[in-house]
Design a protein around this nucleic acid. Structure first.
Lengths: 212, 212
DNA sequence: ACACCCATAGACCACCCTGGTCAACTAAGG
DNA sequence: CCTTAGTTGACCAGGGTGGTCTATGGGTGT
């Protein structure tokens, strides 16, 4: 795909974003190359000139996204933070920064991971498993379990906390849907997010350990 | 639709289930009447003989499901239970029973509520809003907030607990996917569910109030 | 000025699936 | 034997699919 990679960056980005958006919203089968080229503002022919087929495009996107996730997201997460909830707070912040730069990467990866009905070529499969492993390590490696109350199973507490955070993020998504991303006041939602985290700390950590 | 309602119950059920499954999985637009009739084991013509159009079928299903949710689910929930977590436990049990009898009702309602891009005829819209109101009342009416620790916002605690439970249920769904519903040992999962609930009680309730 | 070349657009292809219709058939009841 | 209601699947026009190909620019070297 050197053809594609010799384009000006702007155009590359436009095409990648259009394609990621379409695949993220519809999944591989239901995604339409017609819509992709229209959204990207290029002729139909070009898409098949750059990439040879819909499938190739999809796999190119997958590799591209995994690169970004590993190099621009995982790379920046501070794994020396031993406080589980703080670590999650930190990862949420980093993730948000990445998302500001690459709007549809997480959407695309998300729907890919959900409906993993597709069978990938071996090298992508391997790369994906590696990424999955890495992601888990990032969350759980080096966590200080002694912060948690003694009377609850920390494994279960981990999950409860993650589900809580996912729940908040999902609710936020539906609350904000339709609104322009540019200038909705994010700070107020971060504030709210932190309040939830504080409650989680008060609830799951030993008394006196929930201070920041 | 008297035509349809004069069929033997078995056949009605088969058709309704096929249709609910298809709509639940694909949404209204992407759902295929061809697949529905094949799955239901009837000729294409019959579907349009019973219901006049795809749209009509969809709205019939919606009314049908709302009836079931209200009369067979909401009706059975014990709203005298003032302990929030116990109430959720109870509703989960009732819901599971209903689901055993009407496999796709909740799936159908779920995807309907998610992508509510469709505009309904007024009477269905009204009925849906009523159902939504009722559902909320069922969760929050008559809850004894004094069970909760004083140092956390009960509104937020409500949400954290609901997100936690939804998280568990979702994880369970992916863990069990593909397995035959008939004889996977449900008890072991209920057990696990109760353990999570106990943790939530220990975490969010005042000390000494978490006993059953 | 000409020839070459590659980037580009979009009309076009064969194919597939769609919601919906309809003529033909069956079976029951009088 | 006629009527009527239930039932089927071939069929329809329309629209969307991934992918191809021809025609057109616009540059560059000569």
């Amino acid at each position: 795909m050197e053809k594609f990679e010799n384009l000006e960056m702007d155009k590359q980005q436009k095409i990648l974003e259009s394609a990621m958006k379409e695949f993220a919203e519809k999944g591989f089968e239901q995604a339409s190359t017609n819509r992709i080229v229209k959204e990207a503002g290029i002729g139909k022919g070009m898409l098949f000139y750059y990439f040879n087929s819909k499938r190739d495009l999809y796999e190119y996107l997958l590799a591209y996204c995994m690169d970004i996730v590993v190099n621009e997201y995982f790379q920046l997460v501070d794994t020396s933070e031993a406080d589980f909830i703080e670590r999650l707070r930190h990862t949420a912040e980093v993730k948000m920064e990445v998302q500001a730069k690459h709007k549809y990467v997480f959407n695309f990866m998300g729907t890919f991971m959900l409906k993993k009905e597709e069978d990938l070529p071996a090298h992508l499969q391997k790369r994906y498993e590696e990424l999955y492993r890495l992601g888990n390590a990032l969350l759980y490696e080096g966590i200080d379990t002694s912060l948690f109350r003694n009377d609850i199973d920390t494994e279960k507490a981990f999950k409860l906390i993650r589900w809580s955070i996912e729940g908040y993020q999902n609710e936020l998504l539906v609350r904000l849907e339709g609104q322009k991303m540019t200038e909705i006041d994010l700070d107020v939602y971060w504030q709210e997010f932190y309040e939830y985290l504080d409650i989680l700390k008060k609830s799951f950590y030993k008394e006196g350990e929930s201070g920041r």
